[in-house]
Amino acid sequence: MRLISLLAMGATLAAGTACAEGLSESCASRLAGQRLAFIVPADAGGGYDTYARSMVPVIERLAGMTVQVSNIPAAGGSVGQIQARNAPPGEYTLFIENLTQMVLQTMDEEADEGMVGFQTLAIVDATPEAWVALPGFDVMALAGTTIVASQGTLDGSILPIGVAASLLGAEARYITGYDGSSDFGAAVLRGETDMTSVSLSSALRLAQGGDLQVVLLIADRPHPLVPDVPYLAGEGGVVDRFTAGQDAGSRAAAMDLAQSIANIPDARGIMAPSAMEPDKLACLSELVDAAVVDPEFADLVTAQGRTLAILTSQDAAIRADEIARALVVTRPLYEAMFEAASE
């Protein structure tokens, strides 16, 4: 019995080492046959779950690990975040979450949350926000109007809707309490609201039936998936065109603000608890670097209608810093507009 166990273990290790494409020899042998907990702070079947589950076969093939995905959606994902942060240092643990939201949480000095206790290993998607409306909605003709937007809560609406609308000379009113991007879109369809803003992935889903259209990207360049959709910031963007006749100072301020908003995408980051044993964390980082650029991962994600914008560990950390800087720049305006909208 003991011999059989030893043979089985040996076979697993050998298979793991043989399959370890893109992994150093030491990490390949260290990871083979180990267990990895992948914590998803959201329900099974949603966007975050899709990215996590699409990585499972790739990780298992590359490292010979056994991956278990745990969906812990409680308290808007906070419970999953806490469990991942406090995972035992000797265990392999991965966590996927909205990096932008986590950076924002970290900026709240009172909170021991957000990026505290995590190391970013990769970004799998950094989709810009996109406005969705009925056909005929013209973002260049909004000056002097009030647009009504359907959203879940106010805090996610201010930057991509309120600030963007103000840059185009419009005022935004928010109807909050709708349940997820589908419900936001349904409200637009029923004529209750004029538009909504969701991540580009969700916007493409809403628009695939043809009743709704993606009308604006909160980005500084066209996106390859929707090359004809106008974008907010940068040269040739709608703010650039809208402010063409204005004085240089106010035009530059508007362009800077638009650029800051465009620098805050919905970034989905893969993280590991910083308290993990250093050699284990290093190998896990190596593994995630290899997994996210693996063609099988790309095929699985795109086949499920999700977008990809891969950044491996070093670039992901730089991107997280950029997001943090943009959030600092926009924070005073965000707080002022939030207070006004709350009243």
Binding site: G45, S182, A186, L189, R205, G209, Q304
Partner: peptide, 16 residues
Amino acid sequence: LAFGLPGSEAGVILLA
């Protein structure tokens, strides 16, 4: 089916 809007959890997965 008609709008691409899920009516339930099963609908979300169906759309995926």
